[in-house]
Nucleic acid binder design. Structure first.
Lengths: 218, 218
DNA sequence: GTCTATAGTACGATAGAC
DNA sequence: GTCTATCGTACTATAGAC
């Protein structure tokens, strides 16, 4: 438990930054430790010293970003709920999505990394860590949505949340395409525009009438 | 241009089948030619004989599935349009989505493979082949949607189509989770249920009122 | 057309000097 | 804590016998 030297912290963060970008861009398997250490301008052996293996490096890369985003989501939702009334669907979605957009503004690769981990880089350990944390967040948000969408069965809420996650994930993964979306707009304006459009779109899908004749079964 | 022997065709298809499943499950980079030839029970050298390289094998794997799905999409859309009237949004979505669900029923890994190629296995050549073909399909469908959604600007239609592709892609990529969605339902019933729910959800999102005060600018 | 054998390369991880 | 050097392994691709 000795405090690491400043240089060590710097090396560690340089590795994390480089790995984050490369894992997001190319994926875990297509990224070698040599590519990471070259980009980070550190020695190859530093990775195995500071992190034990490539796999645990991936976990560290994710852990650094995941906790703040998920914490911010829950914080926003709790804050919105403090009035005691059922929330507008748009508010719930804002709490879920905005933290991801905001971290993407400073480091645009982070949302893409998270999308990869969501269902693609299927390395059991890392994916489980990621998915379990995200699953907890989703359960919390599903509770909020249930109150705002009393016309839907639990089954339908679950399905529509999955559809919504898909819209969000694809939008973040393809954010390069999206930045070109608003014709003539600068990038600074592009992301808020997409965020508003996305929330508006998802809210309409969630609010759609129930498809099933059979009522809520719980 | 000599017709290959039956054995050769068999070997080629065995390789394609094994590669398709492995690329879909583990991704391109995490799949070695040895894994493919072992699963296909063919010799290692057969891959480089029938296909030139691993990269062109991926293109062959995709090409085998892509053409029929995209053709079926366009065929359904043209058929629906034959009446001359603007289509219901649900019909347009059915033409876009149903062919993917149907191929997924016989080979459940195919939709997952397509999702990977959409934005994840970022090998330039293969991805470009895939995306160019899909882009042509999307342009055709965007034309149909434009007629059915006259309240939206071109910009908003483009954005909402991207959101919809995201819902579709995530639903297909996570189809394993989705099969467990309808509680108590067998798998044979699960996919039609998900298909109906998905189309209903996306249609509502597409039909949402325009967000922008500024009118259509074309 | 199918095989064995192997060339040539890149990888993850570690030992050991400093 | 940081480096060089390297071990052992796995990979793609191909040459050449059958």
């Amino acid at each position: 438990m000795v405090a690491p030297s400043e240089h060590s912290i710097d090396t560690k963060n340089r590795i994390l930054d480089a790995a984050e970008r490369l894992f997001a861009d190319k994926g875990f398997d297509a990224t070698s430790l040599r590519m990471i250490t070259t980009a980070a301008e550190v020695n190859l052996a530093a990775v195995n010293y500071h992190f034990q293996s490539k796999e645990t490096l991936l976990q560290a890369v994710y852990a650094r970003r995941s906790a703040p985003v998920n914490a911010k989501r829950l914080e926003l939702l709790t804050q919105f709920e403090s009035s005691g009334e059922p929330l507008e669907v748009e508010q719930i979605l804002d709490a879920l999505i905005r933290p991801l957009f905001e971290i993407g503004e400073s480091r645009e690769c982070v949302p893409r990394l998270m999308v990869r981990l969501l269902y693609l880089d299927a390395h059991e350990a890392s994916r489980n860590v990621f998915q379990q944390q995200f699953h907890q967040v989703l359960i919390r948000f599903q509770g909020a949505l249930r109150k705002s969408l009393p016309h839907l069965s639990e089954k339908e809420i679950t399905a529509r949340m999955q559809f919504s996650i898909g819209s969000l994930a694809h939008t973040m993964a393809a954010s390069r395409n999206l930045q070109a979306m608003p014709a003539g707009g600068q990038m600074k304006e592009a992301l808020p525009w997409v965020l508003r459009q996305l929330i508006h779109y998802i809210a309409a899908g969630l609010r759609a009438p129930a498809l099933e004749e059979s009522a809520c079964t719980f």
